[in-house]
Amino acid sequence: MDLFRALAARRTDEVIVTTMTATLQWPLVSRHPLDFDFLAFGMGHASDFGLGLALARPERKTIVLKGDGGLLMSLGSLVTMGRHAPGNLMVLLMENRRYEITGGQTLPPRVDFAALARAAGVEGGGITGMGRVLRIETFDEFETTYPAMREEQGPHFVVLPVHTTEPLPPVAHTDHAGRVRDLRAALGVY
């Protein structure tokens, strides 16, 4: 939650796409028309949706908050990101090494997500050829690294080791079509 509070405090006009555990936690720190809860929209595909949004709306950053378990469901997305992601896409991967939302089942322990992203072509990739892959180990490092990352061209794929210390609120899915309409309206799309 400290990470999300810090991110929310620095929020300007970014679209924030959340899924899985982030979907439950992000609303505790942000209620913004450009927040988008992707949880009901397709397992493992939040960053794909974010890639499409970022391509469509180059005037603002799209930031995707997703988990490591979700990434395992669509590893090919990294290759697609390495080839097609625009400079305004940032994927923040919450690495907790477990399927937290379903009860904490563990992930394969030896997977190196930053190395996967590099091997998929994200580093130096994307349509800008300026893709970056980072692993940020501490909250202080995030606080010092994020402002520059926010301003520079990406795409960015950032691995953030996290653990949850506060209880998760319940899942609340409502009106998926309405949320899409609301996001389009917030983006000025009618």
Partner: peptide, 24 residues
């Protein structure tokens, strides 16, 4: 027309949804 070549079709659908939501 921009051609995007995802790795699998589920990605295609999700990227398309993002593009449409953004007005494309």
């Amino acid at each position: 027309i921009v051609l995007i070549t995802p790795c699998r079709e589920g990605e295609s659908v999700a990227i398309a949804a993002g593009l449409w939501t953004g007005g494309r």
